[in-house]
Design a protein around this nucleic acid. Structure first.
Length: 829
RNA sequence: GCCCGGGUGGCGGAAUGGGCAGACGCAAGGGACUUAAAAUCCCUGGGGGGCAACCCCGUGCGGGUUCGACUCCCGCCCCGGGCACCA
């Protein structure tokens, strides 16, 4: 069907997109030969959790941005591998399954099928032959294998740890699921703390390397900063405070310079020495305090603005610097999981210690005299106590009096070290990674407990430990995994001695599944190895990883850790998985966060059906800077469609052959566009890249500022195909189906994605005449048309000849002339 | 509280090794075509003043540096995100 007046058939996205989806599949356009491809480029997008709701517009935004990068690299001549998979284990899937009372093993395949169809509709350059799901035994065999590697290396250990427990949900909650001490799903139910045996990965052993390596990675700055803060490195000293009993309380401090001001000590309520230190008289009070602390959930305990509480143990320790006996207290503001679980309290130079000392009337001794400028820098406080800065000198500190704090920190540590009471150390905020889940929907942890042999790893040959398809997967109040109710499953002979033994009934954390999925993609065909050595060294590390910053800390940190361990164990030739990482932004709807309760959730299917994938992709990339996100407004989409319509009509009316002299303006604009778009594509500046393509199209249509003398292309003559080929290529990453169709109609062969990204020619981009801005005293008073490369003296002469300029110079002497070649001349009078 | 990111027309957003603020798009108003509408095409468009050429003001607020500041420095305010009794 064609327009009766112009005779041009209209742009019909549904037909075009269906046709090209089919051709891509038939011709295997998106598949790359993993063994032979030249310049291999692993383009990775964060695989989705296949929710029952289907693909979210946030997923589409993320994937399209990554896909555009992959397609751009392919056009630049790289062999691009762009796989996708599904992160389908985990509490999220399990909770949904419980809600609708259907087994997750049944739901997940259906969800994945739906996701797959939606993703195909978006037009990603995905090689579907390498699709994977973390719930597939062919996959989680190797997740279990990774656990065993860590276990054998001594990096997987079982220890007791406190967890959040909701009596209503009858399950353990993640810290993120506890809100101000209450369960997120039961706002009236207080969460309790329970002590459970858990498997931990010793990620803290890798803290220093995880931190150091960050500097070598080309990652989004925000992501790198979050990881840095999460690791939380602090330099300081570990000091020993001796007890009359012969015990020693070890403390970590970042301020060893203040040790002369330590007037009391505080232990965490759970500290192992508490029982021993507590005197008979204090026993009742201490026991009661510890009971209360234990009943609190972890999150409440950590809220910072609570009033200080605590009790005296009855015992005293010796300050190694002063030799004084100082009281030992317990208080919940000291956390067992940081440092040594004990502190020396210096109330004169620490806010928390000061507050505690004031509450319990403990002595405060100033040991730092702030320098004059520092002391008065906080007028709100009248007094310089507590002073926590570094800008001061020591007082009340024996031989160290008068020394600047920073020097004293070093000197005092060295002095205490000579008596064995101190060592310079480093502490990290990072905690070991608890991977146990008392849940059903995950890979069983491959461990067997035998009375005779102890903790025995499942032999690799026996993997996978299949997750049995039980019906009663709902967690109950016992706090043990649903698998623990299935004796027929967990009773097994010990692999070492054959005696009756018992399987571990916990499953592992979803983050373990996702910490290595990118290793699996190139090797999905193999059942006898997690990843093939040759393919892995060819394709990894990942060249570009794009994903949301919500995974900046956990997923990316865990993945780096696992890869580093596998490297150290000799399985991989690289220690960092992602050479380049870019965080994309989030999109909001009409200025507000999307949520079901607001009813403003953008459902991609509706937009894909109405506008087609190409228009929708273009709009998503145009609505804001990709790395910041933007505001999705329905009204804006039509603009992208109009743009494609304009390109379409240029293509349909194009004339064969090359551009002539009369197309000088268009040719110049083309090369300026090639330069600008190429730079933008490198930096993921998709919104401005699209804007530049629009400008070029405006010029081709004889419109816009740069068009001026380009009207020759207007008037039914048609634009030469030479000027449209590069446009089709530059548009291809954004609107792949559309670009294919244009390419074909312009006489292109095979796929536009087998073409080469256009080359920039500086000579063709050069302007013959430029506008020079003339300022007088910094204000624009005129403009000159000049040829590039004008000399300063000539520029000033021409500027002074301008009527408008002369009015403002007003006959006065020009004191100074600033000349920025080809940009402006500023006359100072 | 600490650490990031950000405040620019009616709206989304351009422009920061200091150098024409508002690219590109949306919405709007006016016009052409049409019996009419849609679509399409053309014109206008930060605020104020002037018949006009032009002039003044304008990038969250207050100072500063500079021939020149959205951009750099100092001090605030507001919004978004991360961490939070980390010793």
């Amino acid at each position: 069907m064609s327009d009766p007046r112009t005779g041009v058939e209209p742009y019909a996205p549904e037909l075009i997109e269906a046709r090209w989806r089919q051709r891509w599949e038939e011709r295997r356009t998106n598949a790359v030969d993993l063994r032979a491809a030249e310049r291999p480029y692993f383009n990775l997008m964060m695989f989705p959790y296949p929710s029952a709701e289907g693909l979210h517009v946030g997923n589409v935004f993320a994937f399209v941005g990554s896909d555009i990068h992959g397609r751009f690299r392919r056009l630049q001549g790289w062999g691009v591998f762009e796989p996708i998979g599904f992160d389908a284990f985990g509490i999220h899937s399990e909770n949904y399954a419980l809600k609708v009372n259907t087994h997750p093993g049944k739901l997940i395949p259906a969800n994945i099928a739906r996701f797959r169809e939606q993703l195909k509709r978006v037009g990603l350059m995905v090689d579907w032959d390498h699709e994977l799901s973390t719930t597939d035994p062919r996959y989680y065999t190797w997740t279990q294998w990774i656990f065993l590697q860590l276990f054998k290396a001594g990096l997987a250990v079982k220890k007791k740890a406190p967890v959040n427990w909701c009596p209503e949900c009858k399950t353990v909650l993640a810290n993120e699921q506890v809100i101000d001490g209450f369960c997120e799903r039961h706002p009236q139910v207080r969460v309790h703390q329970r002590l459970l045996e858990q498997w931990f990965f010793k990620i803290t052993d890798y803290a220093e390397r995880l931190l150091e390596n960050l500097e070598t990675l080309d990652w989004s700055e925000s992501t790198r900063l979050m990881q840095t803060n999460w690791i939380g490195r602090s330099e300081g000293a570990e000091l020993a405070f001796a007890m009359p009993t012969g015990d020693t309380i070890r403390v970590f401090t970042t301020r060893p310079d203040t040790v002369f001001g330590a007037t009391y000590m505080v232990l965490a309520p759970e500290h192992p020495l508490v029982e021993k230190l507590t005197t008979r008289e204090q026993q009742h009070a201490v026991r009661e305090y510890r009971r209360q602390a234990a009943a609190q959930d972890i999150v409440t305990r950590r809220v910072g603005d609570r009033e200080k509480t605590g009790v005296f143990t009855g015992s005293y320790a010796r300050n190694p610097a002063t030799g004084e006996s100082i009281p030992v207290w317990i208080a919940d503001y000291v956390l067992m999981e940081y440092g040594t679980g004990a502190i020396m309290a210096v109330p004169a130079h620490d806010e928390r210690d000061y507050e505690f000392a004031t509450t319990f009337d403990l002595p405060v001794r100033q040991v730092i005299q702030p320098n004059a400028s520092a002391a008065t820098s906080d007028p709100a406080r009248g007094s310089s106590i507590p002073y926590t800065g570094w800008d001061g000198v020591m007082v009340n500190s024996g031989a160290f009096d008068g020394m600047p704090c920073a020097d004293a920190a070093r000197e005092i540590t060295a002095w205490l070290a000579r008596t064995g009471a101190g060592t310079a150390t480093v502490q990290y905020r990072l905690h070991d990674w608890c991977i146990s889940r008392q849940r059903y929907w995950g890979p069983p942890i491959p461990i067997i407990y035998c009375d005779a042999c102890g903790t025995v790893p499942v032999p690799t040959a026996d993997l996978p430990v299949l997750l049995p398809p039980i019906d009663d997967f709902r967690p109950d109040e016992t706090g043990v995994s649903p698998l623990a109710r299935h004796e027929e499953w967990y009773r097994v002979p010990c692999p070492a001695c054959g005696a009756p033994a018992r399987r571990e009934t916990d499953v592992s954390d979803t983050f373990l599944d996702s910490s290595w999925y990118f290793l699996r993609y190139p090797s999905t065909e193999f059942d006898d190895r997690p990843f093939d050595a040759a393919l892995t060294s060819r394709w990894l590390p990942v060249k570009c990883y794009i994903g949301g910053n919500e995974h900046a800390v956990l997923h990316l940190m865990y993945a780096r850790f696992i890869i580093m361990v596998l490297h150290d164990l000799g399985h991989l030739g690289f220690a960092e998985p992602f050479t380049r990482f870019r965080a994309h932004g989030t999109i909001v709807k009409d200025g507000a966060k999307m949520s079901k309760s607001r009813g403003n959730v953008v459902v991609p299917d509706e937009y894909l059906a109405k506008w087609g994938a190409d228009t929708f992709r273009m709009y998503l990339m145009f609505l804001g800077p990709y790395q910041e996100g933007g505001d999705f407004r329905d009204q804006g989409i039509a603009g992208q469609r109009r743009f494609l319509d304009k390109v379409w009509s240029l293509v349909r009316t194009a004339v064969r052959g090359t551009a002539g002299a009369e197309h000088g303006t268009a040719m110049r604009k083309l090369h300026q566009t090639i330069r600008g778009v190429t730079e933008d594509m490198e930096e993921l500046r998709y919104n401005t890249a699209i804007a530049k393509l629009m400008e070029y199209v405006n010029v081709l249509r004889g419109r816009g500022d740069a068009a001026e003398d380009a009207a020759e292309t207007d008037g039914g003559e048609g634009v030469p195909a030479e000027l449209l080929h590069p446009l089709a290529i530059m548009l291809a990453p954004f609107a792949p189906h559309f670009a294919e169709e244009c390419w074909e109609r312009l006489g292109g062969r095979s796929s536009v994605f087998n073409a080469a990204w256009p080359a920039f020619d500086a000579g063709l981009a050069r302007e013959e005449e430029i506008e020079l801005v003339v300022q007088v005293n910094g204000k624009v008073r005129g403009r000159l048309k000049v040829s590039p490369g004008l000399s300063e003296s000539e520029a000033v002469r021409r500027a002074l000849a301008d009527d408008g300029v002369r009015r403002f110079v007003n006959g006065e002497d020009v004191k100074q002339a600033i000349y920025v070649p080809d940009r402006l001349v500023n006359l100072v009078v």
